[in-house]
């Protein structure tokens, strides 16, 4: 028994060492979160689905590569990319200066403003819907809007997903006035809005709009102005390792082609109900 266990240990140790992968982009492993509908999500059949899953498959065809799409929890998605668990991240990730310090990004394939959603019964639901403010191009106006929002959110709890630009936005501008909470997934902050634990949450409008049309989102409403630029970065792109500049070129060309021939628009309308193609 004892020796048999010893032998099993040796086998396990060798097996753990795993297999090495060569660098050749005919096979690309892509990670997505699988919990950010309709960008990417897991359906009742256990399959990954969504705008980005379709887009990734289209890009792979353009790059003449066979792709494997895997699900990976959001809070570990960048470290695991660096550790080489996969080669690209296509998971609604905004291109920000902070992330650029550690990873590389392709051209943006989508651009969606950030918006606040609250319960229809909340006093905040009365805040009128406003246009978009860009934190880079129209800083003064955007900050005036934030100040108004800040007064409305004073003393209230508000959430966003952990390590997102939305959470960064809340912590930059609202930390001293509101109770900012971070959630592992967007679905968890939705549960807490419905339960009344938090007043509202910030996420991309591309997340809220489709949700509000579904029975699960019937109690929610998007309020106030939307924001882009600044802490929100320059649109949503594919995350890549800094070392893989050749792969970045492949992605850039594929994305530019998909934007030019209207594939991104077609997929966006199919999944979001509106176009989210960024200006190229």
């Amino acid at each position: 028994m004892f020796y048999r266990l010893l032998a099993a240990g040796c086998v396990a140790a060798v097996a753990l060492a795993g297999a090495a992968e060569a660098k050749d982009w005919s096979k690309i492993k892509i990670a997505t979160e699988g919990a950010y509908a309709p960008w990417n999500f897991t359906n009742a059949a256990g399959k990954l689905e969504g705008f980005e899953v379709d887009l990734a498959n289209d890009l792979c065809k353009r790059m003449k590569a066979t792709c494997e799409i895997v699900a990976q929890d959001w809070d570990g998605i960048i470290p695991a990319l660096q550790a080489g668990k996969y080669d690209a991240i296509i998971a609604g990730m905004s291109i920000t200066a902070k992330r650029k310090e550690v990873i590389n990004f392709s051209l943006p394939y989508a651009s969606t403003p950030a918006a606040l959603a609250v319960l229809k019964t909340s006093p905040l639901a009365k805040i009128p819907v406003d246009k978009n403010y860009d934190l880079d191009k129209n800083k003064a106006d955007a900050e005036k809007q934030i100040a108004t929002l800040k007064a409305a959110l004073k003393g209230k709890a508000i959430g966003a997903q952990v390590s997102t630009t939305h959470l960064n936005f809340l912590e930059t501008y609202f930390k001293d006035a509101a109770d900012v909470r971070s959630y592992k997934t967007t679905e968890q902050h939705d549960l807490d809005i419905t339960a009344g634990r938090i007043e509202g949450a910030y996420a991309s409008i591309g997340y809220w709009k489709p949700l509000l049309g579904k029975p699960e989102g019937k109690d929610l409403v998007v309020v106030g102005p939307t924001f882009t630029g600044g802490v929100f970065g320059a649109g949503v792109g594919a995350g890549l390792r800094k070392a893989d500049d050749d792969l970045r070129k492949l992605f850039d060309d594929a994305i530019a082609a998909a934007a030019a021939d209207g594939t991104i628009k077609k997929l966006a309308v199919q999944w979001f109900g509106f176009d989210i193609t960024p200006p190229m």
Binding site: D75, V162, Y183, K184
Partner: peptide, 20 residues
């Protein structure tokens, strides 16, 4: 930390999210 309380592991996770 999994239900939004920022104790030691929660903060640790946050630092990792910023610095990797």
């Amino acid at each position: 930390s999994i239900i939004t309380l920022m104790e030691v592991t929660g903060i640790a996770q946050k630092i990792i999210a910023e610095t990797y």
